[in-house]
């Protein structure tokens, strides 16, 4: 228990350092780019531009801006106003987009884990059969096709050709399903391969032979003695998988026109909406860090040999 507490505290410290680094880098990058957020096709009257700059604290010296913005985040959790989206604070944008992105990501991950692990287990147990070869070929295909192509084909097939799912919209389970499946498939393919490799390795271990020798049913051996060992690489892959899902959601939110954070981020970065972009990056960093920490914890729970560091 004491271990756990120390681990969490240390992780929190690292997260703070990481966030600070990310904040600094994005601040510098955004300020270093030439032009300003207000440079547009139509020139703005200087008086108004000055007002705008004052509103977003852009007229202060850079170092002052850096501290002010950081202090705002630290003391009030205030990510300031979005520059391009009128009358929206960054917190509001995130509050609206976060549930969408998060539920999409969670659905996709759960789907990927269930599908990937079961496919991996089946193809390892029935190694060399048609089912194994077919499943592993599908898995490589899943890794080899970019998910925006997959999503477009899926829309064509399951929305227009066979109307199973609605084309757009957000809220009901049926509307979540298609984007989540498209987002989860590449991850599922990867997990299936990892599970299969892990299963094959632990199937050849001696304790498994012993379990078979003492007459345990195949089902029990596989679920109780083989699977836990085989899942270790899968668990350690979940960290990168989260990153992959977050990245992929940028594309899928664009294709399915979902009101998540991803579409806002690309817009913010390309339109030089400094405050919104910084807020988004910080949120994503927190998400990723939390997920990595959970993965490390899960690893320690599954494998008693691993010590929390």
């Amino acid at each position: 228990m004491k271990d756990l507490l120390g681990f969490l505290i240390r992780r929190l410290g690292w997260m703070a350092i990481t966030l600070w680094a990310v904040y600094t880098v994005s601040f510098v990058l955004m300020r270093a780019a030439p032009g300003s957020p207000f440079s547009a096709e139509r020139a703005m009257p200087p008086a108004i531009e000055q007002q705008m700059r004052a509103r977003y604290n852009l007229d202060a010296p850079p170092l002052q801006q850096y501290w002010d913005y950081m202090w705002g985040i630290l003391s009030r959790g205030d990510l300031s106003w979005s520059i391009k989206l009128e009358d929206y604070s960054v917190n509001q944008v995130i509050a609206e987009g976060f549930p969408v992105s998060a539920s999409l990501a969670i659905f996709a991950l759960v789907f990927a884990i269930i599908l990937g692990v079961s496919a991996g287990v089946i193809s390892a147990v029935y190694r060399g059969t048609v089912a194994d070869v077919a499943m592993m070929a599908t898995a490589v295909l899943g890794i080899a096709i970019p998910n925006f192509v997959l999503a477009s084909i899926a829309i064509l097939l399951f929305v227009f050709l066979i109307p199973l799912f609605p084309a757009a919209g957000w809220g009901t389970l049926r509307q979540v399903a298609l984007p989540a499946i498209c987002l989860g498939l590449p991850v599922a393919a990867y997990i299936a391969r990892l599970t299969r490799a892990g299963m094959l390795e632990s199937l050849s271990r001696e304790h498994v032979r012993t379990a078979f020798a003492k007459g345990l049913p195949k089902r029990t051996v596989i679920i109780k003695h083989v699977l836990p060992g085989a899942l270790l690489p899968v668990v350690s892959y979940l960290g990168p998988a989260t990153a992959g899902v977050l990245t992929g959601s940028l594309v899928l939110e664009k294709i399915f026109a979902l009101p998540g954070m991803g579409s806002h981020f690309i817009y913010a970065a390309t339109q030089r909406d400094t405050t919104l972009a910084t807020g988004m990056v910080l949120t994503y960093t927190v998400l990723l860090f939390v997920m990595n920490t959970i993965v490390d914890l899960a690893y320690a729970v599954i494998d008693p040999r691993v010590e929390l560091e």
Binding site: I17, A32, L250, F265, A269, V281, T285
Partner: peptide, 17 residues
């Protein structure tokens, strides 16, 4: 630490920059 940074965002920054 770098593993926890969502790199896609840094790339998008850099490419727009």
């Amino acid at each position: 630490m770098l593993y926890s940074i969502p790199f896609i965002f840094v790339v998008i920054y850099l490419v727009t920059f």
